[in-house]
Nucleic acid binder design. Structure first.
Length: 426
RNA sequence: GGACGGGUGGCCGAGUGGUUGAAGGCACCGGUCUCGAAAACCGGCAUACCGGUGAACCCGGUAUCGUGAGUUCGAAUCUCACCCCGUCCGCCA
């Protein structure tokens, strides 16, 4: 959601933003429609308010007549007529407003100036860490961890109980998941200053709209039959909506929250892509960071938070690179995003394990998350940021592939040994 | 899931159809008093949107008493649905 004034006063800016995302052809005409609707909306408001003022004055007139014990039937009759006209005007206003709002919710956030225009091919590798292990002779993680290997990953039975894209970890595999959760949350709370939260794994429609999954991406979400509730696609949704319709204490900003959650995604339209092993799942686990800050702080906060996510990979000794996403590859609500990609030598690919974004005031407007800047000033929209730190399945894939040994075993990285109580998987 | 009770401004809390955007109190801000403070007293104290020159001040208007719809010339007040909170019952981890 954008400032209405942006659309009214600087529609060119919105068009330019859409061009950089490569969406101008498809979404550009919608801007024209929105502009027209916004003008019509104000005309309607004006007409309806004038009529209502007239009706209100009449009502007072009726009251005075009644008080003075005068006959008011004529006035009441006029009021009836006025009321009918008002109903018609209100109806028109509501319809126009609904059409406008529906449209306004479909425009993506405006990317920051340092985000390159264009699609995926315009992404930029900003930096990298560690030395990627050569892929020669290394096996993919499903091979190592599957039933013919360590037996810690059971894809077949996951598919049996839920369907393709749902997995079961077992034994040390399950313990690895639990250990990763502990490692990451401890790191972010103890060393990066995040407050740990535990949140609902289902959310209502208002929350989904607040963080901009709705209305545009409703078909991507799992709904709960019989209730207007949805499985979360990321903890970003419940954690960011924690402060929906609230005014944050400015003295407490910037502030960060860390949480674990499972994430549920229908991945509609992604069938057949990256379907092997742990590369793309309908349910996966993730530790998520969410930060709230004042507008002038958000660029630095993004760098800071990205560093926090990187720290996990460094702790685990896994080579990775940081990619600045081009506008077309940047998520709907985000203004700037860094992806963290970890090297998985078994599949010979860089795997996206984190996405760290600033959403500027885009989500804050939708979710009405504000703070009071300076002492007495009026509340202003906060900026929200979120980043995975880190998503588990691809991390586990990379970890297994990176630490695999010739005999088919997998070494447990030092940082995980206390929680795992083991130095090898299998 | 069932029964009953309740949702009013930053907080507490009046208010069952008409000068109620809403009494009173607390908190907060300004002032008088005081060497200073407290107390006391006086005054102020919601937000959003539309328009008056797209600044400020100000002025006019509209909306907002959980949400939405309805009745009415007129709704915080009456009706219906929904949401949330409390208490009891049922059920369960």
């Amino acid at each position: 959601m954008h400032d209405l004034r942006l659309l009214r006063e600087r529609p060119g800016e919105l068009r330019e933003a859409l061009r950089r995302r490569g969406m101008l052809d498809t979404t550009g005409p919608e801007v024209d429609r929105a502009e027209a609707l916004e003008r019509q909306r104000r005309t309607c408001i004006h007409a309806a308010e004038e009529k209502r003022a007239e009706a209100n004055a009449l009502t007072q007139e009726v009251r005075r007549h009644k008080q003075a014990q005068l006959d008011a039937t004529g006035l009441i009759e006029r009021g009836r007529v006025l009321g009918a006209e008002l109903d018609r005007l209100e109806e028109e206003r509501a319809a126009t407003e609904a059409a406008f709002t529906a449209l306004a919710l479909e425009f993506p956030n405006i990317t920051l100036p340092d985000v390159p225009a264009g699609g995926e091919t315009a992404n930029v590798v900003i930096r990298s860490w560690g030395t990627p292990r050569p892929a020669d002779g290394l096996r993919p993680h499903w091979d190592i961890a599957g039933p013919d290997g360590l037996g810690i990953l059971d894809l077949a039975r996951g598919a049996k109980v839920a369907g393709s894209g749902f997995v079961a970890f077992r034994g040390l595999g399950a313990r690895l998941v639990r250990s990763l959760m502990t490692l990451m949350i401890d790191l972010h709370t103890r060393e990066h200053g995040y407050e740990e939260v535990w949140i609902p794994f289902v959310v209502n429609r208002a929350s989904m709209t607040g963080t901009a999954q709705f209305p545009k991406f409703e078909e991507e979400q799992y709904g709960i039959a019989g209730d207007d509730l949805f499985l979360i696609p990321t903890a970003e949704v419940p954690v960011t909506n924690l402060y929906r319709d609230e005014i944050l204490d400015a003295a407490a900003l910037p502030r960060g929250f860390v949480t674990y959650s499972p994430c549920f995604r229908r991945e509609a339209g992604a069938h057949g892509k990256d379907t092997r092993g742990l590369l793309r799942l309908h349910q996966f686990d993730k530790v998520e960071l969410v930060r709230y800050c004042a507008p002038d702080e958000s660029p630095a906060q993004l760098e800071l938070m990205t560093g926090h996510a990187e720290a996990v990979l460094q702790r685990l000794g896994l080579p990775y690179r940081v990619v600045l996403l081009a506008a077309g590859d940047t998520g709907f609500a985000a203004a700037k995003t860094y992806d963290l990609e970890v090297w998985a030598p078994g599949v010979g690919r860089w795997l996206e394990v984190s996405s760290c974004s600033t959403c500027t005031d885009f989500q804050a407007r939708r979710a009405n998350i504000r703070f009071r800047p300076g002492g007495a000033a009026k509340p202003a929209f906060a900026h929200t940021l979120n980043g995975s730190a880190i998503a588990f399945p691809r991390l586990i894939a990379a970890l297994i592939e990176h630490y695999q040994e010739p005999g088919g075993g997998v070494r447990v990285p030092d940082a995980l040994r206390p929680a795992m109580g083991a130095d090898r998987l299998g």
